[in-house]
Amino acid sequence: MHGPASPGWLLVALCAATGAYCLLRMRSTVEEQRRTAGGEALMGFGMAVMAVPAAVATPPRGFWFAYAIVFGGAALRALWEARESAHHLHHLMGVGAMAYMAAAMAASPGHHGHGGIPPLTGALVLYFAVYVLWSGMGLVPVAAVATAGGARPVGWGDRPELARVCRLSMAIAMLAMLFAL
């Protein structure tokens, strides 16, 4: 992404940490959580790579085409899974935004942010800004999952409030990346 190096590295660290936690969530005993965590890990690590400051590494144009194909495929999968869960609609927006940013960078590497905000970028910024505000307000402590024999300890991979924080941090990072586009 284009912009100052220090915030770029902070964005890389945030996205990589989020991707790493999502990998940890893939160890959950709940199948739906494992599948969702896998897609979110892809998003986290993909965003980390995309956020590397351009002054450090400027990938070749073909890299952005490959990125657009990978995230376009992830968008098709999220679209297919959206028929089961509303969360997948948000995931569809995220991977769609990644495919869009990769395609924009492939189309004109090094020449972004000039001449106003394109309508699709503006719509994505609006979506993620609303999502950040909405999900930030929803961060309240969640009770431990109870079983018939009482409360069972919840592992790090099964903490719903941490999953929400991951999604919130990725949405904030997406906003930063869209503004840098």
Results as ranks from 00 to 15, higher is better:
Ala54Ile: 01
Met50Cys: 01
Gly62Met: 10
Phe65Glu: 05
Pro60Ile: 05
Gly38Asp: 03
Val125Pro: 03
Met174Tyr: 13
Thr121Phe: 07
Leu92His: 10
Leu133His: 08
Val125Lys: 05
Ala103His: 09
Met50Phe: 03
His88Asp: 02
Cys22Glu: 03
Phe63Lys: 15
Tyr67Ile: 05
Tyr127Asn: 02
Gly116Lys: 09
Ala57Met: 14
Trp64Cys: 04
Ala176Gly: 10
Gly73Ala: 07
Pro59Ala: 02
Ser169Phe: 14
Arg152Ile: 03
Phe45Arg: 06
Leu92Cys: 01
Trp156Ile: 01
Gly122His: 12
Thr36Pro: 14
Gly113Asp: 04
Ala97Asn: 10
Ala51Arg: 10
Arg27Cys: 10
Ala75Gly: 12
Arg35Leu: 09
Ser6Met: 12
Ala180Thr: 01
Leu162Arg: 09
Gly72Trp: 07
Pro109Met: 04
Phe45Met: 01
Trp156Pro: 14
Ala97Ser: 09
Arg164Ile: 00
Ala173Ile: 06
Leu175Ala: 02
Ala107Thr: 15
Ala78Pro: 01
Phe45Gly: 00
Gly73Trp: 14
Gly3Ile: 00
Ala97Gln: 02
Ala5Leu: 13
Gly150Arg: 04
Ile172Val: 07
Gly157Met: 00
Leu79Gln: 07
Phe71Pro: 04
Glu84Asp: 12
Tyr21Met: 08
Leu126Asn: 07
Arg35Trp: 08
His2Asn: 03
Met174Asp: 15
Val154Lys: 06
Glu161Thr: 01
Leu79Val: 00
Leu120Thr: 10
Thr58Gly: 06
Ser85Met: 14
Leu76Val: 04
Arg25Thr: 01
Ala86Thr: 03
Val154Met: 10
Thr29Ala: 05
Gly19Phe: 05
Arg152Leu: 11
Met98Lys: 03
Pro119Arg: 13
Ala97Lys: 04
Ile172Gly: 08
Ala5His: 11
Arg167Met: 15
Val140Lys: 12
Ala37Arg: 14
Thr36Glu: 13
Gly96Lys: 04
Arg167Leu: 09
Met47Ile: 04
Cys166His: 02
Leu10Gly: 15
Thr58Ile: 06
Cys22Val: 00
Ala20Lys: 13
Ser108Gly: 15
Arg77Asp: 12
Ala106Asn: 09
Val130Gln: 14
Val140Tyr: 15
Glu31Ile: 02
Met26His: 05
Met47Ser: 00
Phe128Pro: 06
Ala17Phe: 15
Thr29Lys: 12
Gly46Leu: 07
Phe71Val: 00
Phe65His: 11
Pro119Leu: 08
Glu31Trp: 02
Ala20Cys: 15
Val95Met: 14
Gly62Asp: 13
Leu10Ile: 06
Trp134Glu: 12
Ala123Asn: 13
Ala51Ile: 03
Val154His: 15
Leu139Ile: 09
Leu23Arg: 07
Phe65Thr: 04
Thr36His: 13
Val95Asn: 11
Ala68Phe: 02
His114Phe: 10
Val30Pro: 11
Met50Gln: 00
Pro59Gln: 02
Pro160Tyr: 14
Pro141Trp: 14
Val70Ala: 02
Met170His: 10
Ala41Cys: 01
Arg164Cys: 14
Gly94Pro: 04
Met105Thr: 08
Leu79Asn: 09
Arg83Asp: 02
Cys166Met: 00
Leu79Cys: 06
Arg77Gly: 09
Gly44Cys: 04
Val140Thr: 07
Glu32Phe: 10
Gly96Ala: 07
Gly39His: 15
Tyr131Ala: 00
Leu24Tyr: 09
Ala68Leu: 13
Ala148Glu: 03
